[in-house]
Amino acid sequence: MSETSIGRFTSSPRAARGLVAFMPLALLLLLLVVFAVIDPRIAAPVNLRNILLQSAPVALLALSAHVVLLSAGIDLSAGYAVGLSGVVMATRMHAGGDLATSALLGLGAVLAVGAMNGALVGWTRLPPFIATLGTMTIVQGLTLFAAPEGLVVVNSGVLAAIGQGAVLGVPAPILVVAVVSAALWFLMRRTRFGVRTYAYGSDEQASILAGVRRGPQMLGVYLLAAVLVFLTTVMVVAQVPLVQPNLGGISLLLDAVAAAVVGGTSIFGGRGTVGGVLVGALIIGLLTNALQVLGVDPSAIDLFKGVIILGALVIDAGMRALHRRAAGSAA
């Protein structure tokens, strides 16, 4: 390829977007091949199945992060909201409540957090980082207050079926993630709300001039994210029915945000796909599982994740600079 061709390619946002969209899948395949060569146990069918199952909660919470990031926001409270929702559900069930009522209470708890985030970001115009940092602290305190016993064991046949069951040989957690992902794809790509979320994240001022109202839009974004946080809670409790205040926390949140960013969702808003997020969740799941199989120290696992996240952020910043350059040339 000549220098002229290279320049022509790098100045084309469409070509660059195509390359970036393919990169998460290429990275997943590369990591799988490398780890399989290092230790064949990692690529064994039973271990690959375990990776898929372990990635399910991360994928659901990553979809929540994806929605917020598309609007050029962030939700730092999501990890602790998983714990709050789980504690509310488990405490109610432990006291003799039925699953449906307990689930509605857990959903109500995260919707309240989402409404608070949406109001703070949408109407008071607080930066999302600051707003959700405040609600994160509140949620953490509420979770500790709501779980005086510290640990609650949840016994539910329905939850057990969701976490450990299968339909026609396909594990239930994978089916749940697939259905939720398809529904979210339709919502974000085929409805006015989704189109407006992309538009708002791409250019806030232009979208407002086009009729998008900041307050209601941000409220909708954070409420939708809260619903996905609740689904994450259900999946976590279904897979491991031991509920404690640190059920989600910062670790699950970082994995989810990492999956969204590595999967191609821009931290600057307006760009990302549901499919990319799912691939990102598999990358994080594969990386965690493989390094555990290899006996790598847990702190080193975080180091490897950090390197991958940093690389994704650099690519994201480069894409943003490329778009600005293309816009300047067009002007």
Rank of each mutant, 00 (worst) to 15 (best):
S12C: 05
V20I: 12
L27H: 05
L27A: 15
L29Y: 03
L32R: 03
A36M: 09
D39V: 00
P40N: 07
R41E: 11
A44R: 13
P45I: 04
P45A: 13
R49P: 00
I51R: 04
Q54F: 05
V58T: 08
L63S: 05
L63Y: 07
A65S: 14
S71N: 02
I74F: 10
I74D: 00
D75T: 07
S77L: 11
S77Q: 08
A78S: 15
Y80K: 11
V87L: 08
A90R: 01
T91Y: 03
A95V: 00
D98L: 00
G106K: 08
V110K: 04
M116E: 00
G118R: 08
G118F: 07
A119G: 12
V121D: 03
G122V: 12
W123S: 15
T124G: 00
L126Y: 03
P128C: 11
I130R: 01
I138T: 06
L142D: 05
F145S: 01
A147W: 04
A147C: 15
E149S: 13
G150N: 06
G150Q: 14
G150M: 12
V152Q: 13
A160Q: 08
A172C: 00
V180A: 13
A182I: 13
A183K: 06
A183H: 01
W185I: 13
F186Y: 15
R189A: 15
R189T: 15
R190W: 10
G194P: 05
R196V: 01
R196M: 11
Y198A: 02
A199N: 03
Q205S: 12
A206K: 04
I208H: 03
G211Y: 09
R213D: 13
M218D: 06
Y222A: 11
Y222P: 02
A238D: 02
V243P: 01
Q244E: 14
L247N: 08
G248Q: 04
G248R: 08
G249A: 06
I250G: 04
S251R: 08
L253T: 00
A259P: 08
V262R: 04
G270I: 11
G272T: 09
T273M: 10
G275C: 09
G275M: 04
V277D: 05
L278T: 01
L287R: 07
A290E: 08
V293Q: 07
D297A: 15
P298T: 11
A300D: 07
A300S: 14
I301T: 14
L303Y: 05
K305Q: 13
K305D: 03
I309Y: 04
A312S: 14
A312G: 09
D316C: 12
D316Q: 06
A317Y: 12
A327K: 10
G328K: 05
A330L: 14
A330V: 10
